[in-house]
């Protein structure tokens, strides 16, 4: 359960990235967030994972009021999220395996369970052969799937993904979305930021359209007409 009510975010330099936004995502829902580059999509994701704090309004996730959350609770809260970052954020000195395993270790899972679970997840995103490679030894698309694997590995109740298909070919993109859809059926709430209109359309999920920091439409996919139909270059 994610709840935004009248949330605004102004960055220290004065940029108002999010302006009085309200929406809620129920447990088990699958939601796309779309919009132009610079519309404020990543900012919404950052607000959810408490990387940025809202300057006004209330955000509630999994029963936590993020504005009132104590410092000590933050790490525990984040463990209930699975996050795929737009810039992946893999640890360059760890292998693919270690990067994924790390997300489990922080939760205190025992060693042998970690191994089994990580190998299972890497297989799921077809990365087993690259388990011992380092992030700079694999392609952008592969890095993206490592990030996805890390987000999935500890059974989060909410998965948020910022452009999880931004760097991969259409076939793989369909695969990743299909995977997310399947995972969604097993319970977790999923929020995905995406530019890929065709993909968004194909899946037929709820779509929240953001422009200049406000919600301009929040509907099912059939009613949503993409602005301009032009693919923007996502920021790397």
């Amino acid at each position: 359960m994610i709840l935004f009510s009248n949330v605004s975010k102004a960055y220290p330099n004065g940029t108002k990235a999010v302006d009085q936004i309200s929406f809620s995502v129920n447990s088990g829902e699958f939601v796309f967030i779309v919009g132009h580059s610079g519309a404020g999509k990543s900012t919404i994701m950052k607000l959810i994972m408490h990387e940025e704090k809202a300057t006004a309004g209330v955000i509630e996730v999994n029963g936590y009021d993020l504005g009132k959350m104590k410092r000590k609770q933050i790490s525990k809260y984040r463990r209930s999220l699975g996050v795929v970052f737009q810039d992946f954020r893999l640890i360059s000195k760890m292998t693919v395996y270690e990067n994924v395993a790390f997300a489990l270790r922080v939760t205190g899972v025992a060693g042998r369970d970690i191994r089994r679970r990580v190998l299972y997840i890497l297989d799921l995103v077809s990365l087993l052969p690259k388990a011992q490679s380092y992030p700079d030894q694999i392609s952008g698309g592969e890095q993206q799937r490592v990030a996805l694997a890390r987000a999935l590995v500890n059974n989060p109740s909410i998965i948020i993904a910022d452009e999880p298909t931004g760097n991969i070919d259409p076939e793989l993109s369909t695969g990743v979305m299909g995977l997310l859809d399947e995972i969604n059926k097993c319970g977790p709430t999923i929020v995905v930021v995406s530019h890929e209109h065709s993909l968004v359309k194909k899946l037929g999920k709820r779509v929240i359209n953001i422009e200049s920091g406000t919600v301009v439409s929040d509907t099912s996919c059939e009613k949503w007409v993409p602005v301009g139909e032009v693919e923007e270059n996502p920021k790397a």
């Binding site: 994972m49 990387e51 790490s75 525990k76 809260y77 984040r78 463990r79 999220l81 996050v83 970052f85 954020r89 893999l90 640890i91 360059s92 000195k93 790390f102 997300a103 270790r105 922080v106 939760t107 890390r150």
Partner: peptide, 16 residues
């Protein structure tokens, strides 16, 4: 710092 930052967002406690 980047490494530390990532660890924080994956949910690692400060002690960890």
């Amino acid at each position: 710092r980047r490494e530390i930052n990532i660890m924080k967002f994956v949910g690692a406690s400060n002690t960890f």
